[in-house]
Design a protein around this nucleic acid. Sequence first.
DNA 1: ACCGAATTTGAAAGCGCTTTCGAATTGACC
DNA 2: GGTCAATTCGAAAGCGCTTTCAAATTCGGT
Lengths: 343, 343
Amino acid sequence: MTLKEFSKTIGMSQTTVSRALGGYPEVNEATRRKIREAAEQYNYHPNSRATGLATGRSMMIGHILATRTRHEMVNPIFGDFVASASKTYAEYGYDMMFTRVEDGNEEASYLKLKARQVLDGLVVQGPTVKDAHIPILKKIGIPFVVHGRSSELTESYSWVDVNNRAAFKRATQFLIDLGHRRIGLINGLEHMDYAFRRREGYTEALLESGIEVDPALMSCDEMTEAFGYQRAQQMLQTDAPPTAFVVSSLISAFGVRRAAEQRGLVLGKDFSVVCHDDDLSYFENGRDVPIFTSTRSSVREAGRLLAELLIEKISNPKMKDRHILLEAALVVGTSTGPAPSAG
Amino acid sequence: MTLKEFSKTIGMSQTTVSRALGGYPEVNEATRRKIREAAEQYNYHPNSRATGLATGRSMMIGHILATRTRHEMVNPIFGDFVASASKTYAEYGYDMMFTRVEDGNEEASYLKLKARQVLDGLVVQGPTVKDAHIPILKKIGIPFVVHGRSSELTESYSWVDVNNRAAFKRATQFLIDLGHRRIGLINGLEHMDYAFRRREGYTEALLESGIEVDPALMSCDEMTEAFGYQRAQQMLQTDAPPTAFVVSSLISAFGVRRAAEQRGLVLGKDFSVVCHDDDLSYFENGRDVPIFTSTRSSVREAGRLLAELLIEKISNPKMKDRHILLEAALVVGTSTGPAPSAG
DNA sequence: ACCGAATTTGAAAGCGCTTTCGAATTGACC
DNA sequence: GGTCAATTCGAAAGCGCTTTCAAATTCGGT
């Protein structure tokens, strides 16, 4: 059913109907109510493409799926992040789409996206330390907000990020306070900005306590269970094994625990683990009492905040860039305890 | 840059340019090449909304985010599934969007979606045993394909699914052949069709071997690590503990292992585990040698096949419904071995 | 050189909406 | 009751494209 048909059916002009449904003030409230009810009854909804063509806005927000990492690795936080952002988009009448942007072809991809006018704004996820997408988007002039930051970039842009440095500094400090001196770092790939910052926080805490930073205790890779297992195992085999681990993901933390328990060590007693917990809906850190002591920051909350920021930016393109820095909570679970005495 | 501007710039009519870029045969190949090059140079791409309005197609495929399960649980396979499907969509010129459909409000949501003409086709993910979405979509007449099936529905629809029943029957049979008689089932929520079918396969294998089906050995819940741990622990505490587990997800399998290892049992020796492995990019089952013996079926492959099927259905709406049943491979890892002798 | 068929191009209508601008209606006030 | 301002409504243009239909061009055959 088109606007033309619908307005004829209810005996009104297209203009009035359009204005009534669009919420414009020029129409009598009684009329508006009547039209709204009729629209409901006949299931009339404006054709989005026509609306978009007429208004010049598409009411669509894109999330880019960068085919950056090998094997097209999908970040495990992706689902939750998207789900929460999409909820906010929906509340403001936006739809949400995905866009693949090929590595090395970013500029052409974004230019095309802009020319096609298929979306009003973009979300950049998982930026690297020196992210290629951000300057291109700025240059082209597509409104965007970054989930995370890109440390080596100088330009200004809006972002929502967890204070990864502070979180990992605090986690490490927490372990130091418990008497640990050899603390292993099981980190994500360090060209990713979040992992880079976490390492900074880790080393900073060590240095401030006068503890030597030992490269043999630091590792980074895709955050799988197998990786956590493998690296923890390696570290534990050495002459001076760590008594604690700071781990970048809950998934890998399970691997770390497995490696240590296989050596007969008891979690929270013989060895401690602090990990980061994105509070994913399908990957919970225990039920009531958290298993792992963790730096917790809800990726769903980040998604919501980011969506709101982006929508604001879209409706007001001259808005100054804004930065939202979320502090992770240090949640104490059963995975940490005093360093075992050397004796 | 609009078509009008662009064609004036290169001194051609809008018609010719449109036809050249659209790949229509009525235009000279030399002309077409020239126009293509010019489009590249000026970065001209047709406005998607205008194209859509003129053609009546939106070149957009939707995936529904059903806010069905509590806590807005996002399925962990979501990311990989979407990433692979979107790749196929892109190859055929389709964009991909998300749509939230509120529980209990499906009909209105879909009617609106149809009226707005914002998408050409839909993917239904994670159907329940008697799914509400499917009959509604059929009635309304939106082209769709289901990832999974809905056992208690009688109507016909296209789907892509793993043969969950056969996979779990085979997994159970495999354990029986190794001498296991008490086999625990750690399953997903059984109102979900995949979990329902897996239980069927499990019980079928037991019955065929004359083994009693013990309700105490069957459990279902959200497939978290904590759940696997908790239920395995419970089962292991009984007088007649299981010597093997069939587990619906790799994540929960880690929990099962943890519970057993905590009791001093050795995986692959004192107890065996077979789990389902969706071959997720961020959750690998070991590196070279799989940790867990598993029924493996790539969710990425399913996404690709489903995308192709849906695109076919969109371009040919009268197409007969098609069904793609993927057989899971039984991949032997190190988590299974002969049942420990009772002695 | 000319005709008709085949090929290539162009003018313009239409897709379904929003929005401008002018017309019609209403109400207040003298 | 008449006038003017305020309110409400409607005709029509325009958003950027596709596609129909007709016109222009090319070309082979005589």
